[in-house]
Design a protein around this nucleic acid. Structure first.
Ligand SMILES: [Mn+2]
Ligand SMILES: [Mn+2]
Ligand SMILES: [Mn+2]
Ligand SMILES: [Mn+2]
Lengths: 228, 228
DNA sequence: AATTATTTTTAGACATATCTAAAAATAATT
DNA sequence: AATTATTTTTAGATATGTCTAAAAATAATT
């Protein structure tokens, strides 16, 4: 059965490719059925079915019980969907007055719109951005990503100064916490003091001293520091 | 079976509602199964199935062999989808450099995006437009449409002057014909001469005299004329 | 009014994407 | 190494949306 050999994928197939792409960066081995199921909030049996179909389409390699690995082609398709997702997120924030904690669900829908011209024009309208509102890099049209070196704020030492580049956790709750504390991408952050007992950090952001827990510091990705 | 009583419709259901809405304006009686099938490029049997489902959801009235009629609720839902379609078309033309003959297929996809905030912000970004790139009116949030009085150019008499408000036929071929002849919405059109033999019309548009066939004149909708 | 043609509906099938429950394979413990 | 636990796959079912072919209802002709 070799019908439908055109490079068209359903929204569901695209979501699987994207999920597997993201999970691949977390492990050396193949991505497990269970991990995919958890990420997509579905059942392992559904994943097995879909994974077989995607293997038939040559976008991933599947071996029973051994998890899956994307092919070059599969990686490219996934990256292009991620490109669309992140460009739409920038659009929503820059042009439509969305907050960074409101964009994800809409971008999940918009990323599946099929139009050769649409996303290129959005890209141009936005001035060819390189990162999305959460600081995540935007792949180019070929699916290549340039990764900026980032470290967790929790890895810094006292008196080090840096810039907030991205958030590790993009959940609505965490983003809204940052809104409340007026912490935003691009802010300069200086580590004033680290409390040895619970690893909470006293930082200076926007000329204001602020105490953040270690959990927060673990989820803020900053430019590799240079002591001043 | 009363599950899923929330006002959420699938893309397919939305397409049926939209098709029926458009077909309703062409007939006094109920919209026939065959007409819907033709419009949506599907089979009559598929229409019967879907129409039963939509009747269960109270968005239309269905009586075997008698065609369907939208309920108030159904009309509103259809109008809101048409609103989204037309706002996206304006967006594509005004903000993303699309030509008016390139927007329809993308708008067919974008109209199904679910987001309370998205379409309102697009509306605001565009300055609350009242017509789409083809001159068709944009319903408001409640689904109300203000219809401008329009007449076919072919109904005008010699020496009458008017303004092009909309096109009746929005097919790519017709729109590209208009592009080629530099005829655009808003242009002033004066009827110079009507040839009795074939009803072809010599018009003046943009200070240029141009001969158009009756078929073209039938598809150009203009402001009701006043002899000058 | 009876026949013919057209439209519409029903019956049954198929593709996609999902699920539950049970079986099989792999991994972890004793 | 044998047992137990976990993960993964298979088998079979369900929901959506579509199709074809045949039956039923309606409309048009003779
Ligand atoms: Mn996102
Ligand atoms: Mn993001
Ligand atoms: Mn359109
Ligand atoms: Mn239009």
């Amino acid at each position: 059965m070799l019908y439908n050999q055109c490079d068209m994928f359903t929204s569901s197939e695209e979501n699987y490719l994207k999920a597997i792409y993201h999970l691949s960066s977390l492990t050396e081995k193949g991505v497990s059925t269970n991990a995919i199921a958890k990420k997509l909030d579905t059942k392992a049996s559904s994943v097995t079915d879909m994974v077989k179909k995607l293997a038939d389409k040559n976008v991933l390699i599947y071996q029973k019980y051994q998890g899956v690995n994307l092919t070059i082609e599969g990686k490219k398709i996934a990256a292009v969907i991620i490109r669309k997702h992140r460009l739409w997120e920038v659009f929503l924030v820059e042009k439509l007055n969305f907050n960074w904690d409101e964009v994800h669900d809409v971008a999940e829908q918009l990323e599946h719109i099929k139009s050769p011209k649409l996303i290129d024009e959005i890209d141009a309208l936005l001035g060819f951005p390189t990162v999305d509102p959460h600081g995540d890099p935007i792949p180019n049209k070929e699916g290549d990503i340039t990764i900026r070196k980032k470290v967790k704020l929790s890895a810094l030492k006292e008196n080090e100064e840096t810039v907030l580049l991205a958030v590790k956790d993009s959940s609505d709750n965490f983003l809204r916490y940052l809104n409340k504390k007026k912490i935003a991408i691009g802010n300069t952050i200086k580590v004033i003091n680290i409390e040895p007992f619970d690893n909470s950090v006293l930082v200076q952001i926007n000329d204001i001293e602020l105490l953040i827990t270690n959990e927060v510091a673990e989820n803020l990705l900053v430019k590799e520091s240079h002591t001043i």
